Simulated scan of single mutants.
Amino acid sequence: MKKKIVITGAAGFLGSHLCDRFIAEGFEVIGMDNLITGDLKNIAHLFQHKDFHFYHHDVTKFVHVPGKVDYILHFASPASPIDYLKIPIQTLKVGSLGTHNLLGLAKEKNARILIASTSEVYGDPLVHPQNEAYYGNVNTIGPRGVYDEAKRFQESITMAYHRFHGLETRIARIFNTYGPRMRLNDGRVIPAFLGQALRGEDLTVFGDGSQTRSFCYVDDQVEGLYKLLMSDYSLPVNIGNPHEISILDFAEEIIKLTGTQQKIVFKPLPKDDPMQRQPDIAKAKEILGWEPKISRAEGLKTTYEYFKGFSKEALQKSEHKNFSDHIKK
C-alpha cells in the first residue's frame, strides 16, 4: 500500500516542490490550496499523474480527506510581506484556524504532521546567529505581526497537540528559500532583484543595505524538510543556509550575475524589518544529518535562467515596492 500524504499550500512555491518530491518518493499525494497566492501552473505537470489529487479548498474551513492519511505537511500561508499585508486576516486565520483543522485531521487519521514555521518567529533578533532556543523579539502589533504571531501560535498549538494528545508532530523553522516557481511580484529579495535586473531597472535596497539574509536553494530546503518529517524529533528545527550576506553585497552579486549595468538606489527601511538573519543549523546537522549542498552561485544561476523565461508583459507587472506601501491606512 502506498503511503498517503496531504500537502497544503500545494500550488505555492515550496508546496509545489514538495509535491514533486513525494510523488518521486512513491507516495500518493493530495495537494490542497485555495489559490489565494498559489498558482496552478506550479503543479499542472502533476495533474495527469495517477498518484496526485488536487483539492481546491480553504483549510480555515473544516478539512475532510477520505480514507487513510499517513502524513500531513501544512504549508498553507502567505509567506511574503506584500501578500500578508494585503490579506492580514486570512494570514492570521490560516495560522490559527487552519492549523487547528489540520491538527484535528492528523489526530483523526493518526497521521504525522509537519508544520511550516518560519525564521520570522525570531523577529528582529537580539542574538546572532539564531538557534532554536531563542524566544525571539517580535512586535505583536506591528505590520509584520500578522505573519509572525500566526506562526508563533501555530508552533504553540502544535506542541499542545503533541503533549496533550500524543500526536506525532514536526516543526520546521524555514529561513529564506529561493528557486524556480517563486513569483516575481511577491516582494522578496531574490525575485525583486532579478525582476529589476531583467527590466533594466536600478536595484532597490531598503535602508543602507547592511541588513543580512541567508539564502537556501529550494532543493536543499526540500531535502531538509523530508528528513525532518521522517525523523523522530518533535521540537522546532531550523532549516536554512547559514552562509550570511548583506543585502547591499547581494545586490552587487546580482548585478554581476546578470551582467547588467544598473545602479543601486536606496529607500527607507520598512518597519520591523529584521537586521540579521542567519540560522544556527547545528541541530539539523546532528539530528537529521542535513546541511545545504548547493552553493548560492549555482542556485542563483538556475533561478535566473527560470526568470529569464518570463514574458516582457509578466516582467512589467512585477515591481519591487516597499512593503509598507501595502499597509491599509
Rank of each mutant, 00 (worst) to 15 (best):
E120H: 06
K107H: 11
S77K: 04
R112H: 11
L126H: 09
V121K: 04
I89L: 15
T91N: 10
A111T: 06
H100T: 09
A116Y: 11
L103I: 03
K68T: 11
K86V: 00
P88M: 07
D70C: 07
H74K: 10
R112M: 09
Y122W: 08
S96V: 10
E108D: 15
A116E: 10
P125V: 08
Y122V: 02
D70F: 10
D70P: 00
H128G: 01
E108Q: 15
P78W: 00
G95M: 02
G98K: 05
S77I: 08
E120S: 11
K93Y: 12
P66H: 12
T91H: 06
A111H: 02
E120C: 02
P81I: 09
Q90T: 05
E108A: 14
L85W: 10
S80D: 02
N101I: 07
Y122G: 04
N101M: 09
S119E: 14
H100S: 08
P78V: 00
A79T: 13
V127K: 12
D83Q: 14
I115D: 01
I87N: 14
V94R: 00
T91R: 02
S80Q: 02
N110E: 14
G104S: 13
N110L: 06
N101R: 06
V127T: 12
I89M: 15
N101Y: 07
E108K: 14
L102T: 03
I72V: 15
T99P: 00
V121C: 04
A111N: 05
I89S: 11
I87D: 13
P88L: 04
D70I: 05
Q130Y: 03
A76P: 08
P129T: 06
K107F: 09
S77Q: 10
V127E: 15
H100V: 09
T99R: 03
L103V: 03
S117G: 12
T99L: 02
K68E: 13
A76M: 05
L102W: 05
D124A: 07
A106N: 07
I82V: 14
L103W: 04
P66Q: 14
P78M: 07
A111Y: 03
H64G: 10
A106Q: 08
H64E: 15
K109R: 14
A106F: 11
Y84S: 00
L92V: 11
H74I: 09
A79N: 09
L97E: 14
I113K: 05
L114S: 06
V94E: 10
S80R: 00
K109A: 07
F75W: 15
P129E: 06
L73K: 03
L105Q: 04
P129Y: 04
T91G: 02
K107L: 13
I89W: 12
A116N: 11
L102P: 02
L85A: 04
K93A: 14
V69M: 09
V94I: 14
V127C: 07
V94M: 11
V94H: 01
G98Y: 04
V65P: 02
A76Y: 03
V65K: 11
D124H: 06
